[in-house]
Each structure stands twice: as structure tokens, then as C-alpha cells.
């Protein structure tokens, strides 16, 4: 089993992801430079956080046209697991692999700190380690995390279980004060219709070891490996 972590100019969480996969999960992983035109040999892909292309024009809008994204799109459309974190989320929405878009935080502030998340749906294989309604604690660090989608798109997403994670308080109540960025319905993470493409604004790679203050993010990584072990897919 081998995971590929896509590295764009301006990615800055790529090595954190690489560390978690190699040292914590003990799974083989490589960085894939954004100029690569194929992703053959990888069982799952990660689009890490950062500020690809300086967030010029719109966050993720330029990275979405990096040569590697054609291969990432083919991989996703063939059912391959793709995880997007923070800037990776923005790139996946810009690429049309996930619904909606991410705008400037409503308070116009870069938000850096720990948040609580409620697991809203376990439909995606990335959520297999968690229970429905479980409250997780993860760090966020973003300026453009304000999730929006048209009302009809949102309603379809809810029906399909694509709204995966929502910001909540420590008790699991989804409240406006628990929302760090103004996202519609406190949405923090979503998946595509078939569940194989999943992304979130919080950073599961920064909370996968007790030394970092929490391990609630580890479940996402473990679920990815579990999914590959039970139903490996090579595209």
C-alpha cells in the first residue's frame, strides 16, 4: 500500500502529512510534485494544506490547473480515495470534485486554534473510525474557510449524507459561536456523492499524536488505510 501526497508550490502541510503516514501509520508514502502527469502506483491521494500559488485570484483556483490535477481527477472519478485538507479542500471545490466553495472568513480574520467538530454522517469511508454524532477536537488554521453552496445543492448533500463534519461546542451543540468562519450550517467537512473524495478545513495531520495535544484526527488516516486494506483500488 502506498499513499501519494501532492505537493503544490506553496503547500506547507505536505511534510506533516508525510510524517503521519510514514511514522504514525507505518504506511509507505511519497510526495508527488504538482507537475507530475500521472499517479499510477498510488492507492490513495492527499491534497495537503498551505497557500498554493499564494492564494492568488481565489484560494485553490490556480493549483486546480496544475498538471497533476488531471490525473487526480481521473483517479477520483475511478473511485480512488482522495483526502483534501484546508487548501486541499479549496482546490477540490475549485476543481469541481466537491460541491460548494470556500470564501473569506466572515470575521475577516485568519483563524488559528482548536475547534470541536460533530460527525454528521459516516457515509464516507473516511469516517469509518468515528460514530455518528461523535465530537472531535482538531486545530484549524485558515483565512478562507467560509463554506457556501446553493440551497438546492446543500439539500441534496444533506440527503446523501455528504455533510460530514460540522463545527460545534465541546458538548456537540452546533451553535453560531462555535462557527470559526461563518460557514453555512457550520459545515467543516464534506464528501462527494460516492464518498471517495472527502475534505475538511481542520487539520487531522496536526492531531494524530498525543505529543501534539490530541489524537482525534488519527481516525481519518486509519479509516483511509482500513478502506484500502479491505477494498484496495489501483487506478
Amino acid at each position: 500500500m502506498k499513499l501519494g501526497i501532492v505537493q503544490f508550490p506553496g503547500s506547507n502541510c505536505d511534510h506533516d502529512c508525510l510524517h503521519v503516514v510514514r511514522s504514525v501509520l507505518q504506511v509507505e508514502a511519497d510526495l508527488i510534485w504538482h507537475e507530475a502527469t500521472q499517479v499510477a502506483g498510488y492507492d490513495a491521494l492527499v491534497l495537503p494544506g498551505g497557500f498554493s500559488y499564494g492564494d492568488y485570484l481565489r484560494s485553490g483556483s490556480i493549483a486546480r490547473f496544475s498538471p497533476v490535477m488531471r490525473a487526480v481527477t481521473d483517479f477520483a472519478e475511478a473511485g480512488g480515495l482522495v483526502l483534501g485538507i484546508c487548501n486541499g479542500f479549496q482546490i477540490l471545490t475549485e476543481a469541481g470534485l466537491l460541491p460548494g466553495a470556500l470564501l473569506r472568513n466572515s470575521a475577516l480574520e485568519f483563524r488559528c486554534g482548536w475547534v470541536h467538530l460533530r460527525v454528521e454522517s459516516t457515509a464516507s469511508p473516511f469516517m469509518a473510525s468515528y460514530g455518528h454524532g461523535q465530537v472531535l477536537r482538531m486545530p484549524v488554521a485558515h483565512g478562507d474557510g467560509n463554506y457556501v453552496a446553493d440551497p438546492d445543492v446543500l439539500s441534496r448533500m444533506r440527503d446523501n449524507g455528504q455533510v460530514t463534519l460540522r463545527y460545534c461546542d465541546a458538548e456537540g451543540n452546533v451553535t453560531p459561536t462555535a462557527n470559526p468562519n461563518g460557514s453555512v450550517d457550520n459545515i467543516a467537512g464534506v464528501c462527494n456523492e460516492s464518498g471517495n473524495v472527502f475534505a475538511l478545513m481542520p487539520h487531522p495531520e496536526r492531531c494524530a499524536e498525543p505529543e501534539l495535544g490530541g489524537v482525534d484526527g488519527l481516525g481519518i488516516w486509519q479509516a483511509m488505510v482500513l478502506a484500502l486494506t479491505s477494498a484496495p483500488l489501483r487506478v
Binding site: L57, R58, S61, E94, A101, A149
Partner: peptide, 8 residues
């Protein structure tokens, strides 16, 4: 394709 995001 690039300059505007039709979603928003």
C-alpha cells in the same frame, strides 16, 4: 474556466 468561480 478560471477568472470567475460560477458557484459563487
Amino acid at each position: 474556466q478560471l477568472l470567475a468561480n460560477p458557484v459563487i
